[in-house]
Every structure is written in structure tokens, then in C-alpha cells.
Amino acid sequence: MDFLLTEDQLALRTGFQALLEGRFGRDRLRAAVEGPPLDRGLWRELGEAGFFALRLAEADGGVGLGLQEAVLLFEVAGGALLPGPLVATHLAVTYGAVPGADGALEGGSAEAPPMGPVVTALEPSGLIEHLESADAVLVGSEGGAPVAAVRPAELPSAPLRSVDPLTPLCRLRSGAEGREAPGLPQGPVRREAALLTAALQLGSAARTVSTAVRYAREREQFGRPIGAFQAIKHLCARMLVRAELARAAVYAAAVTEAPHDIAGAKLLADEAAVNNARDCLQVHGGMGFTWEADVHLHLKRAWVRKEQWQSAHEAEDLLADGLIDELSP
């Protein structure tokens, strides 16, 4: 047993961190907040860097890596607040449900670049993120496949004013025009979506710890850094504990891929991301309440992701049933 990251995994993570720092620094983040959140150019670069085709075999034009590596990249993306339907596009490529591939969606939209389709998904909450920018939407499949893709126009939907400036949201309008609402992605797709969302949350939770700690070292009041005050120290310590527990759960779920492990990972990562952003805000004082500081972006995105793919109640119910079945560790 060696639960720690391998050298290759560490290198992969560092490499992707460097790529994002170069291509999606603070200026780009703030531009995305004020402008269109999704940048097709960056999306294509992510595709070229193998973010979406990470788990496809090399023979199929992929990178040939696994779910563990995907989790590490999503953790980095979550820390950087990278916008876009990352999870759905990654899964669409992994399961061959992209425009043009497998005939799932004949042709796709004219502008869809081969390396960078934008694919979103119909989520269990009934919400769909980034629908206006999407080339396709993942839904449940009528056949045996876990997932299928449809054109955005085929889904009756209504936009809502999203709480998160980086995540435009639409709500599915069920039963419109006498048509039956499409089903949800199922099985492994849904579980992996929950796990990758948990990885995004983990990245955010860890990032808000370092942001809070940096601010606590710099900001001075009463003639010393606020980080010297125990109330602030203890907030930061609690944040680290949450993030590290979530990390252990998310990484383990990436290894076992077991439904209960994924449910626990999502639950703890949601809790860590939301509460850490909340505490990070508190450490920042009045600055934390501004539009200008990035803290609210972490908090709002954490709220969005918390509702995605697996809600706390669903996870808790699944885990509770597992107790009756006497799960072993």
C-alpha cells in the first residue's frame, strides 16, 4: 500500500498547474467574471493538453491515463476556478458522446472545433450549466449506453439568473410541447461526474485555505498580523482539517471507484468547499464581502457544485443504507 501520489502523478499535477497559471491567471479570471465565462480558445487548449481525452486510449487519440489522474487535474481546475462544463465535456469525450463521434450527434454544430467540443449535461437537479455555449448536452440513453448527447435546442429550457457569475444556469422545462423530458445520465457516468465534481470542490477548498493563510500573514491590525490572533488561527486550522479529510476521501474514491466512497467524497468535499470559502470570507473582513475579492467566486461556485450530480441527502441516504448492509472499510 502506498496511498501517496506517484512521481508521475505529482509531475502531471505540477504541469497542469503551470499551464493554468500561464493561461488562466487572475486577469483572465476577472475577465471571465465580467465577460462571457467560457473562452473557446482556452477550451481548445485544454483539449489539446489532453484534459478531456485524458482517459481515452492513446490509440484513440487520448492520453491513456485513469480516473486518479483525472481527479488530480480537476482538483487543480477547481482551485483556479476554471469556468465551463468541465465534467460533462470530459465525460462526453470519455464515453464517446461528442458531436461527430460515434454518430451520437450527427455533425455537431458548425463551429465545434474537433479538439474542443463544449458539452454540458442535464443534471439530477434539473439544472444545466453553460447551455448557451454548449454544442451538445449529455442526457440518459434509451439504449444500453449510460449516456447520449442531444443538441441544446432539443431541450426545453429556461435560463435563470445564476448566483455564480462564472456558471450560467438553465432549468429544464419538463413536459413542454407534449414531449417527454429526457432521462439523466446513469451508472458510471453519473458516479464519475459526482467524483470529478468533488475533485473540483477539493481544489477550491484547498485554495481558500492558502488564500486565507496568506491574507492572515499580510494584513495587520493592532500592530500585528491578524494571523497571530488565535481566533483567526483556529479558523484556518479548521479549514485545513476539512480540506485534508476531503482529500483523503476524494483520492480514495478515485482508487476504489466504489459508489459509497464516491458518495462520501462528494459529501465531504462539498462541506469543505462551502465552509472553507465561508471562513476565508470571514478572515478577509470587509474585503471578503466585495465583488473585487475572489472569495465570493469560490463560495458561489461551491454552492453550485454542491447541488450538482449528488446532493448531500442522496449521499447520506446511500451511505446510511450501506451501514445496514454492514460495509467493511
Binding site: A252, E316, L323
Partner: peptide, 21 residues
């Protein structure tokens, strides 16, 4: 009650993983 126990299951499973880490 069920959810309270479900949440604790996640917590202890993660503590076990943290131990392995």
C-alpha cells in the same frame, strides 16, 4: 437520523483513509 448516521459513515471512512495516507 438516517442522514446523521450516513454522514458519520462518510466521516469515519475518510478518517480511515487519512490514516492510510
Amino acid at each position: 437520523l438516517r442522514r446523521r448516521l450516513g454522514r458519520l459513515a462518510a466521516e469515519f471512512a475518510a478518517l480511515w483513509r487519512l490514516t492510510q495516507w
